[in-house]
Amino acid sequence: MKRTCITLADGRELIYFDERDDAVRASVDGRQLPAQAPPAQLRWDPLTEEWVAVAAHRQGRIFLPPSHECPLCPSTAAFLTEVPADDYDVVVFENRFPSFAGETGRCEVVCFSPDHAASFKDLTAQRVGTVLEAFTDRTAELSQLASVQQVFCFENRGEEIGVTLHHPHGQIYAYPYVTPTTQRYLQACERAGKNLYAEVVARERGGERVVAGNEFWTAFIPYAARWPYEIHVTPHRQVADLTELTDAERQACAPLWLEVIQRLDGLFGMAMPYVAAWHQAPVKQGRDLCWLHLRIHSIRRAPGKLKYLAGSESAMGAWVNDVAPEQAAAALRDVAL
């Protein structure tokens, strides 16, 4: 893999991750862009003890443009985009409308393919491996920033989830604090005096809620899944984040990650809206208590039916799942690939 870094017209960083070592990246961003937006404000809520980022500039971000105006496609003579080149494999760049920037962290966009009409399930296992390499590279580099406390790599797919661009892409948030989900997990581990996710992995491997697996990874639906279809893809040994995986583990992850997405899409014969989220340890604390894993969940519970976060979930944080995890795992295993 070849890594090439350039600077966009407004000073943001862009990195090409090419599968060919002889790739040449000489294109220059010819756009006239306004100055970068100021960083978001971080505000502390004493009632929930959580940080809230107020990023008013994000109101102006591009919303579901027509395909010929997609800012994530390669540039053409008729339309210059965020990617100056006329083709690419995987590309990462600083978000033009970030939730976090400067002293409040960083946000990046990761484009998986130059094909606007593609989806993650259409990628080759090699390309998924390149995406994983890009996520790993960015986790390592962003973790070195003084303001960053946790790095979060993820993909949102589907208008039902809230995506604003259809082009196949993910994002990376480098937070200036440890996220509430991770904080609650670490507090539970500290009370128990052990790595609780290790017990989850030991319980689920080989059980009735397993969806798929290989020598290094297992994909399963947890016993207490919150979402109708919630899949954890986890390595068989404890590592804190993507940077601690071996080459063999990364290579084995790519086809399994791809298979899980293909099974989701095959479940009802339609593109499933989902969030695919890499849960990584914080940069500076609790690394021995965290177990890297990918959580993929869909809000679709049946054809034509979505799982809405209504009163109980939204107001009280009290979850009710409409699909038994055992039933969901069996349905996913039965999908013909």
Score class of each variant (00 low, 15 high):
A188N: 08
E108Y: 03
A77D: 14
F93W: 04
F268I: 06
A117C: 04
Q262C: 10
A252W: 01
S314N: 12
A146M: 00
A26G: 06
A9P: 02
A125E: 15
W257L: 14
D334E: 13
D122S: 09
I6L: 15
L289T: 06
V260G: 03
M316Y: 12
I261P: 01
V54P: 00
Q150N: 00
Q262M: 01
Q41I: 03
D265C: 11
T182E: 02
A55D: 10
L292Q: 04
V211E: 00
E94W: 04
G213E: 09
D89Q: 08
G213D: 02
R58S: 02
T7E: 14
L145V: 11
F152E: 07
R301M: 14
E313H: 01
R31I: 06
V211I: 09
Y197H: 13
F93C: 07
Y308F: 14
D247H: 08
E159V: 14
A174F: 04
L123V: 06
Y308P: 04
R138W: 05
P65C: 12
L309Q: 11
S27A: 15
C111W: 11
G30D: 12
R287T: 07
E326F: 00
L306D: 02
H169Y: 11
Q41S: 14
P282K: 09
P273S: 06
H232R: 11
C153W: 05
L8Q: 13
